[in-house]
């Protein structure tokens, strides 16, 4: 039941408990209780909008940074990861398999700001061995949503 609610909210976070109740056949009180619990135990982390910043005059530069680490005694990668994800510039931080260890998505106002972050902050953290920075040239799809050129397909209004 919680899964149903989460699927609906993941698709549209503005769906109200009343609407969810109608969509699932659950009572509104039960929906509200489950959502409250999910927020409390951080099953739902946050509600937010997916913004296409290209539409507004506010420059944003995105970079994917591959980070190679040296594991720290007793704490492994987690403490290094934490020192990185605490920086507000980092938007996404994943531990990944493959040729590098951390995948870090960084957003800044300019190339310069990101360069500063990498050279002044990231590379100085103990345990960070090597970084490869890749600037994002174009965002095609963001969190499941096509950014540009999503066309409404017209259906015939009445079909028997």
């Amino acid at each position: 039941m919680l899964n149903d609610i989460l699927k609906i909210l993941e698709n549209d976070a503005r769906t109200t408990p009343k609407q969810i109740a109608e969509m699932t056949g659950m009572s509104q009180a039960e929906v509200s209780r489950l959502i409250k619990q999910a927020l409390k135990d951080r099953t739902i982390l946050k509600y937010k909008a997916i913004v296409n910043w290209d539409q507004v005059e506010d420059e944003h530069v995105w970079a994917l940074i591959e980070v190679k680490l040296t594991p720290q005694k007793d704490v492994g990668f987690d403490s290094v990861a934490e020192r990185i994800y605490r920086f507000p510039q980092t938007r996404t931080v994943y531990l990944v398999s493959g040729t590098y260890d951390l995948f870090v998505l960084v957003v800044g106002k300019s190339n310069h700001e990101i360069a500063d972050f990498v050279s002044q902050k990231l590379s100085h953290i103990e345990g960070v061995n090597e970084t490869v920075t890749q600037f994002v040239l174009k965002r095609y799809k963001e969190d499941g949503e096509i950014v540009e050129g999503k066309e409404e397909v017209k259906r015939q209004p009445v079909i028997l």
Binding site: R155, Q156, P157, I159
Partner: peptide, 10 residues
């Protein structure tokens, strides 16, 4: 027009 007259998936 909002159509509820269709006969196919959206």
């Amino acid at each position: 027009v909002i159509s509820l007259g269709v006969g196919e998936p959206d």
